[in-house]
Each structure stands twice: as C-alpha cells, then as structure tokens.
Nucleic acid binder design. Sequence first.
DNA 1: TTTTATTTTCAAAATATTTTGAAAATTCAA
DNA 2: TTGAATTTTCAAAATATTTTGAAAATAAAA
Lengths: 168, 168
Amino acid sequence: MTLPEAKQQFISSWGAFATHWGINRTMAQIHALLLISPTPLTQDDMMTELSLSRGNVNMNIRELVDWGLVDRVLLPGERKDYFTAEKDIWKVATQIIKERKKRELEPMMRLLAQLENVEGDKKDKDVKQFTDTIGGIKNFSKQADRMLDVMIKADENWFVGSLLKFFK
Amino acid sequence: MTLPEAKQQFISSWGAFATHWGINRTMAQIHALLLISPTPLTQDDMMTELSLSRGNVNMNIRELVDWGLVDRVLLPGERKDYFTAEKDIWKVATQIIKERKKRELEPMMRLLAQLENVEGDKKDKDVKQFTDTIGGIKNFSKQADRMLDVMIKADENWFVGSLLKFFK
DNA sequence: TTTTATTTTCAAAATATTTTGAAAATTCAA
DNA sequence: TTGAATTTTCAAAATATTTTGAAAATAAAA
C-alpha cells in the first residue's frame, strides 16, 4: 500500500470509528490528518486535503482546540494560523478521558446523587427497584471515577509497566 | 422528589447521556425503563410509558437483545412477549465492553496492522510520521485490548476489591 | 382450517445534524 | 489611519438519522 492510499484509508476509518463514540466524522478526520502530518497545517491545507468548506474546518478545529487535542501555533513571519496535534497517543487518551469525565461522568454523578433520595415507601417494589438501580449505577460510577483519576495521573510507563504486569 | 418525577428524570437523562456514546436516545430510554422496572414489560407497556410507536420500540428492543443487555422472557399463560434487563450494573458494563471491543476495537486493530507496512522510504518525514503515529496507536490499542480482556474476565468483587485498592 | 392476537418490516415522513459559503469581524502591514 | 489577508459566524441547504404507522408475516387459539 502506498502512503497516499494508507493516509486516505486511515483518515476515513478514523472518521467512521469516531461516529461510534459520539464524535462527528469531520472532527475526527481533521484530527487524523493532523496526527499523521509531520508539520503544522493551515485551515486552507485541511480544506484542500479533506475537501471541506472553510466554515466547517474552522468550527471543527475550534472544537479540537477546546478538547485540548490540537494547538494553534504561530509561525514567525507567517500571517496564517497553523495547527498541530499532540502526537503522543497516551497523552491524547489521557486528555480525552479527562474531558469526558468532566463533561459527562461528573454531571451524571450529580444527577444520581439527587435521584437516590426519592420519596416513598422502601417496601414498595417500584421504589425499591428504582433506588437499587440508581444505587448500583452510583457505586459503579464512583469506582470508574476513581480509576479514571488514577489513569489520568499515571504516566505511560507506569501504566504499561506496572499495571499491565499486574493485570496479566 | 416523587418516584414518577425521578423515573422521568432518570429515563430522560440516561437517553441524553447515551447520545454522547453513539447510542440512540430511544434505545437508551428503553434500557433505562427496563432497568428500573421490577417486573418484565411488554412492547405495549414501553409504547405507553415512553410515547413511542410500535415499530420504534420493536427495533430498539431487538438492538438491546443483540447487545445482550435485555432478555425476552415468556410468561406462562401469556400471549405477549415480555422483556427484562440485566440489573447488575457490573454485568451490564462487562457486556458493553465485550461487545464494543468486538465491534470496534478489534476491526480497528486489524486495520492498523495493515497500515503499518506502508511502502516508502523510512527517512521521508511523511512516511516516518505516518508509521510512528500508526505504531503508537497500535501499541496503545494492544494495551487497551489486554486490559479490557482482564476486566471482562474479572468478577466484580475482584475488581472492586483488589484493583481499586491497587489504584489508590 | 380459519380467525385473532402479536410481532416484524420498511417506505415515507419527521426530525436532527452537518455542511456550506458568503458576509461580518478581526488582524496586521503599509 | 487604510486596505488586504485571514478568521469567524451563522442562516440556509444538504445530508443523515430516527420515527411512524400500516401492511405483511408469524404464532396461537378457536
């Protein structure tokens, strides 16, 4: 497989993959393009490479910057903005975990805490099943939350070394 | 908060939450409804509770059964099919991990294996960045794959007990 | 068998999301 | 300043996804 074919394949698959994770195709494709680019790119470069409109590239790049996955870099003497992606996949994963935890897990945990003290007779089977289910999800979330915190703090070597040996 | 309010809130939030994970709102709401129901429900029950059409409930229930999160149960003497959800959240999570691993992670790993042997001069910076990125993702995926396998095999007590102590 | 209840399918309609592109805003050099 | 280059915004258009509901298929009862 030639490099252009492989790039094409990677960008397209990465985009398809991302849709299973609630991330839009274009955002993932731009991320993929930047991940395999040895040098920073401009919005025009991305428009050309991926055949996208200026507005679309602009919106999705901003989203990637918000997620902390892409940085705007200013090259001396250049008028245009350049963008570059963090290449260390461990750091990428850590950043995604951190953001999703903040955006999704934490709000969900706040909701569960509220829902747990529902009024009603604990002997009523509907009340019981509701509180049991909420309680179960709350416990699970708490464990997941703690685990993710440790993963975020851990560096790659610690993870790959100690944890994986432990897991085997 | 009364039980009906709390149920409503849970079902609606669970649906919204799910959209961030590439799961459709209705499927998640049906799942939520079954999670808090102490007894099995029919498709008609779900249609009424969630104000959905018959076709919609039918499709999404089938999807939940495919994911292994919901079971069809036949009550003796009853003509209609009843459905019930696995209530143990650890088992739910394990099942989801297992399925997503099979449906997404494994195909991605096969693709990465192919993309790694792209033709071209390793000294070319484009080739180098491409193979480095793919290699990095491949390594990371391999670690994640192994970790998920252990989590799937581990039982809840082992996980919550030993693993979380380890993580602290 | 025939009838009735129930489930499944799927084309069309409704809804939601993404993409475009041109206008407005901003930035920077002259 | 002014004006050219660049970035941002956002309403409208295009596209994709979800939902409906009625017809077809299936299963059970009469």
